[in-house]
């Protein structure tokens, strides 16, 4: 326990953003309990009211409370982003580790497919996939996964190749370790830290991509509260009711910044090169 506190005390930046991230996730989980109004409850006579004491963020064209909708949307956006990052990381790393460890035909097939994926503009391909499968949040996640796994495949493959020629991997094989053990005990643990850091840093980016698809109408469907979708709905009232655009946008901005900074500070802690630079700065300060 003491150790944990010492760790958090040493890495203030990380502690701050981790706390913020926890806060955001808590809000998302508890959102139905905190919000003052039902986000689906349309009261047409209160449509397009500006922010005020009654409705903190104002109301939308159907008279729904915008504050409640923004808070509830965090649930949709956050969890679909987490799900997306998990899918991408697991699929990408698994394929990358397989390609790197086995080499040969497996490597060629996986890497050529990933080359193909990379040569398409990501969003366009995602739109195409979402278009074919039909617009829904699940399909949007599938679409973004399909174009984003390549990054993780490349990363994990290069990490595996880096350690594959090391003596201790050969030793593991000579000790009679089966392939499964080689993959899970040798290849995965050495590439995992880097993959996790990248995944954390990608949460924000993934959230934006999903929101972009939703904004274009290929993701979540009305009346689901979702930031991208809400911004699209507010787009028409830019002149008359700008809060419809500002509040979902600001919420998204804050959450994306929190997760990006969390990923950044996590990398500073895990990557020894960054760590050393940090320590040197500290020493200079002491001197």
């Amino acid at each position: 326990m003491k150790k944990a506190f010492a760790f958090l005390g040493e890495h203030r930046l990380f502690t701050f953003f981790a706390a913020m991230a926890v806060l955001v996730v808590t809000v998302a989980v508890l959102s139905p309990l905190i919000v003052p109004y039902d986000p689906y409850d349309a009261v047409t006579r209160e449509a397009l009211q500006p922010p005020g004491a009654e409705h903190w963020f104002g109301t939308d064209k159907l008279g729904r409370d915008l504050f409640s909708r923004v808070i509830c949307a965090s649930r949709t956006s956050l969890f679909s982003a987490f799900l997306l990052v998990t899918c991408v990381t697991v699929i990408g790393s698994a394929l990358g580790i397989i390609a790197g460890y086995f080499g040969g035909a497996a490597d060629s097939v996986i890497m050529r497919v990933s080359d193909m994926m990379i040569s398409f503009p990501g969003l366009v391909l995602a739109i195409a996939i979402a278009g074919i499968l039909g617009p829904s949040l699940t399909n949007a996640i599938i679409a973004v996964t399909a174009v984003s796994w390549t990054k993780y495949a490349r990363l994990s493959r290069s990490l595996v190749l880096k350690i594959k020629s090391k003596d201790y991997v050969a030793a593991g094989k000579l000790s009679g370790s089966k392939t499964k053990r080689m993959l899970f005990r040798y290849m995965l643990p050495t590439s995992l830290p880097t993959l996790l850091i990248t995944a954390t840093m990608d949460i924000g980016k993934m959230m934006l991509e999903l929101a972009a698809l939703c904004f274009l109408g290929f993701g979540a469907q009305p009346p689901t509260p979702e930031w991208g979708l809400m911004m699209n709905e507010g787009r028409l009232y830019l002149q008359t009711a700008p809060w419809l655009l500002i509040f979902p946008g600001a919420a998204m901005f804050v959450v994306v910044v929190i997760f990006n900074m969390l990923g950044d500070s996590l990398r500073d802690i895990m990557d020894p090169r960054h760590r050393r630079a940090g320590r040197r700065r500290k020493e200079v300060k002491h001197a």
Binding site: Y168, G172, P189
Partner: peptide
């Protein structure tokens, strides 16, 4: 491989660091 084993050159590279 049970019957033939090997000792590596560089003892700092030959073991899983974790």
């Amino acid at each position: 491989r049970q019957r033939i084993q090997m000792v590596f050159q560089d003892p700092s590279e030959a073991f899983h660091p974790k």
